[in-house]
């Protein structure tokens, strides 16, 4: 069952130099119980896409979309009050830096129960029990005594587990995790990711995981969307994206990764990301693409293959080039 379907999401930001089109017509679907990875480099619009769907954008940003269907509702038509009833309730959020995601002047217990009390209108005792259950579930020992502690008394890994517990308080249908492990050490990262994956499977929740780390998507996601300069340039099942990438940007990105099996020089993507200000015609990647030709300046067709693998490129099959690089 498709729980989330975003169609043609656009986010424009007014700047002094003109309108910056940060997200340019993104389509994204999440099935129930599925982990979807959005991967891309800084400024590609991956975090804004998630924030845009939640309606959490800075004032200077303007969102438009044909439709954002979440469960049975269209979020583009939802009122502010309806959105508040969904955020933190039906959609849980896990942010990158647990130090800024937690309020330093409230106890862990207050922060964990706040959303639950607001959305469920239950007795405090019930909320506390739910918080303790989730702290235990996330592997935190002495859960009850943690409730009276403040964020600064806990390590980074502990804080991130609390942020995860907080996102799960109201049993959300969808969890959005924006770089959930980027600020953490590697051993803790693996443990946090496993925790998210286990809980997701248990609750059959949908997950959108946003990351720049190809290792994280490879191991976490069922499907991947690769974003470049505000567009999804390639999307599909994780296996086919990594085994047979079709878009030259995806191919380039994978070749940049240090790999034990392939010593020597790393792949490089020459040039820089184009400016996002103003309208664009043709392929966003053509200024850096090794295969760019004249047709790349015109509108780019989306190729689709069985199994849901799709990409935006003038070249219908890159498999030969993949093997070369």
């Amino acid at each position: 069952m498709t729980m989330l379907k975003i169609e043609n999401l656009r986010i424009d930001i007014a700047t002094q130099n003109g309108t910056l089109h940060a997200v340019r017509g993104v389509d994204l679907e999440v099935e129930k119980g599925e982990v979807v990875g959005i991967v891309g480099e800084s400024g590609c619009g991956k975090s804004l896409t998630a924030m845009g769907l939640l309606g959490l954008l800075p004032r200077s940003a303007q969102r438009s979309a044909d439709r954002i269907r979440f469960l049975e509702r269209d979020l583009t038509k939802a009122s502010v009050a309806e959105l508040r009833g969904i955020r933190g309730n039906r959609i849980g959020m896990i942010f990158q830096d647990p130090m800024t995601a937690l309020n330093p002047s409230y106890t862990i217990g207050d922060q964990l129960t706040e959303g639950y009390l607001h959305h469920r209108k239950t007795a405090r005792k019930e909320a506390v029990e739910r918080a303790i259950y989730l702290l235990n579930r996330t592997g935190i020992t002495a859960a009850r005594s943690r409730l009276s502690q403040y964020p600064h008394q806990l390590s980074g890994g502990l804080r991130q587990r609390i942020v995860i517990a907080m996102a799960l308080m109201c049993e959300p249908d969808l969890i959005i995790a924006d770089e959930p492990t980027t600020a953490l050490d590697v051993t803790v990262q693996a443990q946090i990711l496993r925790l998210i994956k286990d809980i997701q499977a248990e609750m059959a929740a949908g997950v959108i995981i946003i990351t720049h780390d190809l290792g994280v998507v490879a191991q976490m996601a069922d499907r991947v969307a690769v974003m470049y300069a505000g567009e999804v340039v390639e999307a599909g099942p994780t296996h086919s994206i990594f085994a047979a990438p079709q878009h030259p940007y995806t191919i380039g990105l994978l070749s940049c990764m240090p790999d034990a099996a392939r010593r020597g020089r790393l792949g490089q993507i020459p040039g820089v990301v184009p400016s996002l200000i103003g309208e664009r015609k043709g392929c966003a990647f053509r200024t850096r693409c090794p295969h760019a030709t004249q047709p790349c300046r015109a509108d780019i067709a989306i190729h689709r293959r069985a199994g849901g693998h799709s990409w935006r490129c003038t070249i219908p099959d890159q498999t030969a080039n993949t093997r070369k690089s």
Binding site: S155, V186, V188, K197, D213, G215, Q219, M220, H239
Partner: peptide
């Protein structure tokens, strides 16, 4: 703990307890 970019190798089981 190092995540492989080959899908399907799975999330590692870390043989160490959490806390520094």
């Amino acid at each position: 703990a190092n995540l492989s970019t080959h899908p399907g190798s799975g999330l590692p089981m870390i043989d160490a307890k959490w806390d520094f």
